[in-house]
């Protein structure tokens, strides 16, 4: 329970339920793996269903235990997402800065969360794979940059497909565009790299700081039990929903 090196008086500890959402292969699991194990895998296989992990971080005044749902981005699992975000206090909506479609998908997730999730949910919009854009800080200079804003020196014109230099052939979602969107939705915004570790801890810390003190439950919060109870009503057979959706797009 105690945080590393916390020989002093134990800080109050509370748990935060967090869900990761986003298109397949944007790097959700990689972000979690970096955050939890400080590890990265070059060829990570897609998540099946969802994975549940926990990780603690220490803030100045308290310890936060994240209970993390890393969901599968593949379309066929989409109907299960509500189960994971319904009781979440925080959400990481992840896209891949090299893939415009993933940014569009991220916007869909944000609006779904705003409609369906808990009204106080803290949302962070996260543009991952920042290491692929060559003028981002190189891995060695992963000096603490507490804000995803202002990383990119070269301003783009905001238009996608704008080819200013080599980098632009890789980066497809300009920082400015994404940041503006996040501001509008009152969401946090970061660009990260699960590969280099750039900004990963920062996202989680920022989220932890954003969670209102009053919303924090004890470490052994009744969250699990609540989840079960409240979700009884919402039991929908995956098959039914899924195939419905599929028919929709097949016709």
């Amino acid at each position: 329970m105690a945080d590393t090196g916390a020989a002093s008086a134990p800080k109050p500890s509370s748990s935060v339920k967090l869900v990761l959402l986003g298109e397949a292969a944007v790097g959700k699991s990689s972000l979690v793996m970096r955050f939890v194990n400080n590890d990265f895998q070059e060829n990570k296989e897609p998540t099946i269903g969802a994975a549940f992990l926990t990780q603690k971080i220490s803030l100045s005044t308290r310890t936060i235990k994240f209970e993390i749902w890393d969901t599968a981005g593949q379309e066929r699992f989409a109907s299960l997402a509500p189960m994971y975000y319904r009781n979440a206090q925080a959400a990481l909506v992840v896209y891949d800065i090299t893939k415009p479609s993933s940014f569009t998908k991220a916007q869909h997730w944000v609006s779904e969360l705003q409609r369906q999730a808990s009204p106080n949910i803290v949302i962070a919009v996260v543009g991952n794979k920042a290491d692929l854009a060559s003028n981002d800080p190189p891995p060695s200079t992963s000096a603490p940059i507490s804000d995803g804003d202002g990383i990119v020196a070269v301003p783009t014109d905001g238009g996608e497909g704008e080819l200013e230099d080599e980098e632009e052939t890789i980066r497809k979602v300009p920082v400015r565009t994404a940041k503006a969107y996040a501001d509008e939705e009152k969401a946090l915004f970061f660009e990260t790299s699960a590969k280099t570790g750039h900004n990963v801890a920062e996202v989680f810390t920022a989220i932890a700081n954003q969670i209102p003190e009053t919303a924090l439950k004890g470490p052994r919060g009744a969250g699990g039990a609540q989840t079960q109870r409240t979700e009884e009503r919402g039991r929908v057979d995956l098959g039914v929903r899924e195939s419905g959706a599929k028919e929709g797009c097949a016709c």
Binding site: S29, V36, T47, I48, G49, A50, A51, L53, T54, D70
Partner: peptide
């Protein structure tokens, strides 16, 4: 297939 094992943590798989 490595996806479940490699992830660490617990999984919930339909």
């Amino acid at each position: 297939a490595g996806s479940v094992k490699a992830g660490g943590g617990e999984n919930w798989i339909p």
